[in-house]
């Protein structure tokens, strides 16, 4: 379960990659280069990265409307991601899906999802497929605190526990379902408390501590892989930016947002890596520079990619 230096640096790199990606998306959005809407995960990077670091390469994930980070951590390529957001033919979904539907079946990413809780039974079904095929894969199911009040969350957890499916449910509790505070939407104090109703382990973890997330998820993934069934993990975290593009943050205070910014998962991990002499500031600066260049190159690739042809508009509805 011990993390290697390589893995720790990978986690730092991925968190930084997500942060840069999201901030660039925000910038491109404000410059009218991105159409529609998008939901950014700035501040929540440690959960995506720590959780996915606990998976093997061929394990699967399902993601959410706030899914860019999951995709990046799962091995999603920045050029194809930017291209998708810019609606280009070279994007992951050939410009048909956009921000809320990025998927990459080849890397085990079964897709972001525009329906709150929509991915929960899909992850459960993917896990059923693994159990039936005995392929040893585990599916990690991301969802937000809003989804824990959807009926399908309860239906799915019940079934997964009953059938001991190799799935790990991870709730990114960022404390708000759009504008409604968690305490105003959910009758229990913690999402993880609901695990008891389905006779599975429920764990709460600091979602801004990447290594803590890794260890908790790792334990659950190994349990699932041993055939002992699902777990429910709740990572407490916070989104720095609004729910989506139209959010003026009227439902929370500036002080609260600032307080959480102090708990920045990236700054915090950097400090830890340096203190524990895993890396020097110079090494981490070098990683950041590399990431920044990758981001620039990826945006260039996307900008220079062709628009999808209207002639192909009906292409890909049916297999």
């Amino acid at each position: 379960m011990d993390l290697t230096t390589d893995k720790k640096l990978w986690m730092y790199r991925k968190m930084y990659e997500i942060r840069c990606f999201e901030l660039e998306v925000d910038r491109l959005f404000k410059a009218n280069m991105i159409w529609g809407t998008c939901h950014l995960s700035v501040g929540e990077e440690a959960t995506a990265v720590g959780a996915i670091a606990a998976l093997e390469a061929d394990d699967m994930i399902t993601s959410t409307h706030r899914g860019h980070g999951h995709c990046i951590a799962k091995g999603g390529k920045l050029p194809q991601m930017f291209a998708e957001l810019l609606g280009r033919e070279t994007g992951y979904c050939r410009g048909r899906g956009g921000s809320m539907h990025i998927a990459d079946i080849d890397t085990g990413n079964l897709g972001a999802n525009g329906i709150v809780g929509g991915g929960i039974p899909i992850a459960t079904g993917a896990a059923l497929a693994s159990k039936m095929k005995k392929d040893g894969r585990v599916t990690l199911c991301f969802f937000g605190d809003g989804a824990n009040n959807e009926g399908v969350f309860h239906e799915s957890l019940n079934i997964a526990s009953l059938w001991k499916l190799p799935v790990v449910y991870i709730c990114e509790n960022n404390l708000y379902g759009m504008s409604v505070a968690f305490s105003r939407s959910t009758a229990v104090k913690n999402v993880a408390d609901r695990a008891a109703a389905y006779d599975m382990p429920g764990e709460i973890v600091d979602g801004n501590d990447v290594e803590a997330v890794y260890h908790v998820v790792k334990k659950a993934v190994e349990r699932a892989r041993r055939g002992e069934g699902p777990s429910l993990i709740e990572a407490k975290t916070y989104r720095w930016l609004g729910h989506s593009k139209s959010d003026a943050n009227v439902y929370r205070t500036k002080e609260e947002i600032e307080e959480w910014k102090e708990k920045c998962p990236i700054k915090r991990y950097r400090l830890k890596l340096v203190q524990e002499k895993i890396a020097t500031d110079e090494e981490l600066d070098r990683i950041e520079k590399e990431v920044e260049k990758e981001i620039r190159d990826a945006i260039e690739y996307a900008k220079n990619s062709p628009e999808p042809s209207v002639d192909d508009i009906a292409n890909g509805v049916y297999a």
């Binding site: 079964l110 039974p121 079904g125 993917a126 039936m132 019940n158």
Partner: peptide, 27 residues
């Protein structure tokens, strides 16, 4: 294993079929 009785949970049953299908089964 191949004739699977489910709880009364139509949305989950349907979604589980979707997930299993995407992951290579034919539910």
């Amino acid at each position: 294993e191949r004739v699977v009785d489910t709880p009364i949970s139509e949305q989950a049953i349907t979604g589980i079929a979707v997930g299993a299908a995407v992951a290579g089964m034919r539910p």
